[in-house]
Simulated assay, not measured.
Amino acid sequence: MEVFDPPTEEACATIVHGTTADTDKAVAAAKAAFAPWSATEPSERLALVKRILEVYQGAHGAEPRTDAGRAVHRT
């Protein structure tokens, strides 16, 4: 689904629709990851998050943007 910028009425982002099954799968994965992630040293967590950002930038050529707390990829 495209998201439009109200002042310009131009498409500014794309949102992918998920199913209930997608949501259930994501919640189960988050619950399974919580204990190991919490036990990881903060410096190691930071290194992992930085690596994720590097991979994102390599694929999209820019940093992810956030609007209202939700990450979006600008089109």
Rank of each mutant, 00 (worst) to 15 (best):
V3H: 10
D5S: 05
D5V: 04
D5C: 05
P6E: 09
P6L: 11
P6M: 09
P6Y: 12
P7K: 04
P7M: 02
E9G: 04
E9R: 10
E9P: 00
E9L: 10
E10W: 02
E10S: 07
A11P: 15
A11C: 12
A11L: 15
A11D: 07
A13D: 04
T14H: 11
T14Q: 12
I15W: 13
I15M: 13
I15E: 11
I15R: 14
V16S: 10
V16Q: 11
T19Y: 06
T19V: 04
T19S: 15
T19Q: 03
T19L: 05
T20D: 11
T20V: 13
A21R: 09
A21N: 12
A21T: 14
D22F: 01
D22C: 04
D22L: 01
T23K: 12
D24Q: 12
D24S: 10
K25S: 14
K25M: 14
A26E: 13
V27K: 06
V27H: 03
V27F: 05
V27Q: 11
V27N: 05
A28H: 02
A28K: 06
A28L: 05
A29Q: 09
A29N: 03
A30L: 14
K31E: 12
A32I: 06
A33D: 05
A33T: 02
A33F: 01
F34L: 14
F34P: 01
F34C: 06
F34T: 07
A35P: 04
A35L: 08
P36R: 02
P36T: 00
P36H: 02
P36D: 00
P36V: 00
P36F: 04
P36G: 00
W37Y: 15
W37L: 06
W37K: 03
S38Q: 15
S38M: 14
A39P: 01
T40I: 09
T40C: 10
E41G: 02
E41V: 03
P42C: 06
P42S: 11
P42K: 07
P42H: 08
S43F: 03
S43L: 03
E44T: 08
E44G: 00
E44N: 02
E44H: 01
R45N: 08
L46T: 14
L46G: 09
L46H: 07
L46A: 15
L46K: 13
L48V: 13
L48A: 14
L48M: 13
L48D: 05
K50M: 05
K50F: 02
R51L: 08
R51M: 06
I52R: 04
I52C: 10
I52M: 13
L53G: 03
L53A: 05
L53D: 10
L53M: 07
E54D: 14
E54I: 00
V55F: 01
V55K: 05
